[in-house]
Design a protein around this nucleic acid. Structure first.
Length: 427
DNA sequence: TGTCCACTGGAAGGGAGGGCTT
DNA sequence: AAGCCCTCCCTTCCAGTGGACA
């Protein structure tokens, strides 16, 4: 009897995924058709056709919740435009058009690039010529970056479509000056023309825009409704057919993923993630097919991974704040005030050996934790005893500790003592 | 009905850190 | 080296406030 190689048992098991097709279930994959987005694709195409004819298409704002196919639709249109140009070039198109204008796209995710400098620098560097120096990522005055970008862009005739994904983030962070500048760019361009596609899941943000920016940015508006369970099912089925080997996934599993996705405001990304992770879990347990229980496990795993990742990458002081909230959650407290949290935070800082930030700053960190969904924090009034936030952990304490525990600084920390509250001390 | 607490959250600005320019 | 610029993180200052209590 010979010893077994560690990989042997896995090699024998039949994989569930088709070879090299796992990517079909990744968020960045652009499918060849977009089920239940035909109307939106058509509408977008009817606007963008102007670009292929060499004119500036209207600026567009696209709204819709996460996972409603906004980004996918825009990227799909980009792909189709590139494809159309290729066809015309090769003379394979059905129409009698002989030549199409050069159209460029630049995609910027404003969650990552959220400063005026960053936006201008990104666009500027998209069109650098050979031997030309790139715009550095910091150091230049804004005005110079703007001028350099304008020059690069205008070097030859073209239509540039700037896609600003999560455009609301850019606005909330840096105001609407950049948008204003981009919208007015056309006035100073001789050869090139620019139009903007803004993508956002926040319908409200336009209310706060400068009226001039608002009207020019929203020349056309598209709203993407959430998918329902049946539509999600269609999307998943199409992807599953590509990604999985035949007979390894059945209708129930797909329906379940679709149902869960539909519950989460029709989020296709979630549903697709779910399917992929369920497949990976099933494969790991060397199953012949993906089962419903794999989906439930996947759901659980995705949620935990998400919490863990968020907590792990928190800045140090946010971690200390969270640690305090964690300790009191273990004591069953779910009604902490800002003052109490700050008190614990100060004590913990002493233990960790770092100097505490001001309470004003901590209120901001608390808001951030709230937005990340790790804690709940709502403003309440305790009447005579003041106005404050009521703070509670909104994820399982154990998971918080698992993630925080990875940090060496927190390994042997003892729970802080709770301040005696004035509301209690009156007895 | 007014008081008053424990904050909230906006505004302004300082300073460090990245890097460019002269 | 000195002087800029932009961004990030933080502090300081402070007007504003919901509602229990006297």
């Amino acid at each position: 009897m010979h010893t077994q190689n560690v990989f042997e048992e896995y090699l024998d098991a039949q994989p569930l995924f088709n070879k090299n097709r796992r990517g079909v279930l990744r968020p960045e994959y652009i499918p060849s058709t977009l089920p239940h987005r035909e109307a939106e694709v058509k509408q977008l195409a009817s606007i963008m056709i102007t670009a292929l004819r060499g004119n500036r298409p209207s600026n567009i704002l696209i709204f819709g919740k996460t996972g409603t196919g906004k980004t996918a639709t825009v990227r799909y249109i980009e792909k189709e435009m590139a494809d159309m140009k290729q066809r015309v070039k090769e003379g394979k198109n059905a129409s009698h058009v002989k030549d199409l204008s050069p159209v460029d796209h630049i995609y910027i995710n404003c969650e990552i690039v959220d400063t005026p400098y960053g936006i201008l620098q990104n666009i500027g560097n998209r069109f650098i010529r050979v031997f030309q120096e790139r715009i550095p990522f910091t150091g230049w005055p804004l005005e110079k970056v703007h001028e350099e970008m304008r020059k690069n862009l205008d070097a030859q005739p073209r239509v540039l479509v700037v896609v600003l994904d999560e455009i609301d983030k850019l606005f909330y962070k840096s105001g609407d000056d950049v948008l204003y500048n981009l919208l007015n760019l056309n006035d100073t361009l001789v050869n090139a023309q620019v139009s903007i596609i803004g993508i956002s899941n926040d319908l409200k943000f336009t209310e706060f825009l400068d009226p001039r920016v608002k009207s020019r940015l929203g020349e056309e508006k598209l709203i993407f409704p959430p998918y329902n369970a049946q539509q999600l099912g269609d999307i998943l089925r199409e992807r599953a057919d590509l990604a999985f080997r035949e007979g390894t996934i059945d209708e129930e599993v797909i329906s379940l993923c679709a149902a869960i996705g539909a519950k989460e405001h029709g989020d296709a990304r979630r549903a697709i993630d779910l399917l992929r992770v369920a497949g990976e879990i099933a494969e790991r347990r060397k199953a012949e097919a993906v089962m419903e229980r794999d989906v439930y496990r996947a759901k659980n795993q995705i949620e935990l991974d998400c919490i863990r990742e968020v907590v792990r990458t928190l800045p140090e002081h946010s971690k200390v704040v969270l640690l305090g909230i964690y300790f009191s959650a273990k004591e069953g407290r779910d009604d902490l005030t800002t003052g109490e949290v700050y008190d614990m935070y100060q004590q913990l800082c002493k233990q960790v050996g770092t100097s505490p930030l001001t309470q004003r700053r901590i209120t901001d960190l608390i808001s951030e934790l709230d937005m990340l969904g790790i804690i709940h924090a709502r403003v309440i009034s305790k009447g005579k005893y003041g106005r404050t936030r009521e703070i509670a952990l909104s994820v399982p304490p154990r998971e918080v500790w698992n993630a925080l525990g990875e940090d060496h600084a927190f390994q042997d920390i003892s729970p802080p003592r709770m301040r005696i509250q004035s509301t209690i001390s009156k007895f």
